[in-house]
Amino acid sequence: MAYRWGMAVDLDRCTGCEACVTACHAENNIPTVGAGQAARGRAMHWIRVERYYEGDFPDVRVKFRPVLCQHCDAAPCEAVCPTYASHQSEDGLNAQVYNRCIGTRYCGNACMYNVRFFNFFNPEWEKPLNLQLNPDVSIRSVGVMEKCTFCVQRIKAAKVLIKSENRDLKDGELQPACAQACPTTALVFGDLNDPESRVARLSHSPRGTKLLEDLGAEPKVTYLQKQAWYEPDAH
């Protein structure tokens, strides 16, 4: 059976700690661009935690919202790419083929979530920081777009593993780096085609919404809205 990878993000659990952000950097060989380039808008964070204030002091509230590639079914980034570097994989991943990318950056404009990041320069790791690089993840050269892959290298490895062990993938066995690190388990990853999977069940939660749903990109990431506290005794 084909997989359909998806994620549920529980905004009631997310604390904005950004463990996911660093985990993603560590797993996916995302370069650190340095202060000068960061000031010029070149920082790369495949996953970011958006923070929005509501109200004014002292009646102020905050919303945290992790935003990563939504792996949309109708991803606006895909069709605009003239070289098919961005396309939908069989597992429903929004795949980015670095080798085919010529750097029009059109996908980055078309993506309403702004989760695509561009290699403005060749990445550098000052020795010996390069020793940390994950050998399972290719390094992107200058002029190439990159983005969250749902840790496709882990997906591939897991497929090889279950094939060699002749078994099915267990729900929760496979996690991208962000979900694995997330202390509050706000990020849940899995196969949406498996109705029993945790992510499939959460995706049908009444709290579930899609980010910018009206724009019709049909994302595979579901956001579970923060709940308000109510007094159980009052009911």
Partner: peptide, 14 residues
């Protein structure tokens, strides 16, 4: 046949 943006493989409009 490469799928993009949920469009049909042969997309008449474009």
């Amino acid at each position: 046949p490469l799928k993009t943006s949920g469009m049909p493989i042969v997309s008449w409009w474009p």
